[in-house]
């Protein structure tokens, strides 16, 4: 009998035992502390962490205290080691988490990032204590690296800058950007490999940019929308969603999500159609399906207009 045509079986991973908040847990070698926390049902805040992407470990809101370590460590990125003793709700942990969410809420527009409000409440964050937010800066894309005007401290510096509406498919509003790197990773080596966007500049002036901050239609962008799919704050958004929000008509409670298969090429990508009022308003792909792992191309992501009622001429 022929063997079943399956992938070669890998030996099972060794189990590693760690202690988190006094509870012992065994997880497979190679798991992260976040995995172990999840196994114990410990709710760990995350912002830059994405299931399909390697941990960027940039936001640092998931930090935990490891006994014996000088500093806190990121739960999302740090792999478990035998006999680690970890605290996820110590004073130090709570403090750093509070400061991270305050830092972000005082400098970024988190108005459509629901978890941000949860985290602020959970850690008693008071972003207003840094002062009133500074206004949007139209020159943010062209800061001289390693140089800034001395602040007077009377307003809190922000990343606010005018939203970029330079094409019909999606909108980039970097006032909402927490610089989690996910869009860059999705556009780059981890999935799309188009490298249309990058982190440019440095420090607080670092921003997501095309080359020379050119408009998207002049960039290498292929409009796969895989960056939108991973954006946790709505900085990147379907034009359709943006316009509905602008018209105060975006209403997720009235939306259905249906999984189906893309009608175009023969790869068979799974689509999740977000439908409001019998109109497709957004298309995503399930993160956990191994054909797409959440990714699509321009046709799968945006090529649905022909079934939306408005432009479809009745036969």
């Amino acid at each position: 009998m022929t063997e079943l045509p399956m992938a070669p079986v890998k030996p099972p991973a060794r189990l590693i035992s760690v202690t988190i908040d006094g509870q012992q847990v065994e997880v497979p070698e190679g798991s992260t502390i976040l995995d172990a926390c999840n196994q114990l049902g410990i709710d760990t805040p995350t912002l830059c962490y994405g299931d399909t992407l390697a941990p960027a470990n940039a936001c640092r809101i998931c930090v935990v205290e490891l006994e014996g370590a000088r500093t806190l460590i990121p739960a999302c990125a740090r792999k478990v080691e035998p006999d680690m003793v970890i605290h996820t709700d110590s004073e130090r942990v709570r403090h750093s988490r509070k400061m991270v969410i305050e830092f972000l809420a005082s400098s970024v527009d988190l108005s459509i990032t629901p978890v941000a409000q949860d985290y602020l409440r959970r850690y008693d964050g008071r972003p207003e204590r840094y002062g009133p937010p500074a206004p949007a800066d139209p020159e943010r894309d062209h800061k001289r690296t390693g140089h800034h005007e001395p602040p007077d401290g009377q307003t809190a510096a922000t990343v606010h800058s005018p939203a970029k509406l330079d094409n019909d498919l999606y909108v980039r509003d970097y006032s909402k950007c927490i610089l989690c790197y996910k869009c860059v990773d999705a556009c780059g080596e981890q999935y799309q490999n188009t490298f249309a966007i990058t982190v440019a500049g440095r420090g607080f002036d670092a921003r997501i940019s095309t080359e020379y901050a050119n408009p998207l239609p002049e960039s290498a962008c292929v409009y796969c929308g895989n960056c939108i799919a991973v954006c946790p704050t709505g900085a990147l958004m379907f034009r359709s969603e943006h316009d509905l929000r602008d018209a105060a008509a975006w209403d997720e409670s009235r939306q259905t999500q249906t999984d189906t298969i893309c009608p175009y090429c023969g790869v068979g990508c799974n689509l999740t159609l977000h439908v409001q009022d019998n109109q497709i308003v957004k298309v995503t792909s399930p993160d956990d399906h191994d054909i797409t792992r959440g990714n699509l191309c321009i046709k799968g992501r945006f090529g649905f207009q022909h079934v939306n009622p408005q432009p479809r001429a009745p036969l």
């Binding site: 259905t256 249906t258 298969i261 009608p263 068979g268 439908v275 079934v307």
Partner: peptide, 24 residues
């Protein structure tokens, strides 16, 4: 058939038969 019909299957280039569903 990919979004207005409940049911139906397609097969992709790795011989995977997948279900389609109605959304509209």
């Amino acid at each position: 058939s990919w979004c207005e019909v409940e049911g139906g299957t397609v097969t992709n280039s790795e011989r995977r038969v997948q279900r389609m569903r109605k959304a509209l």
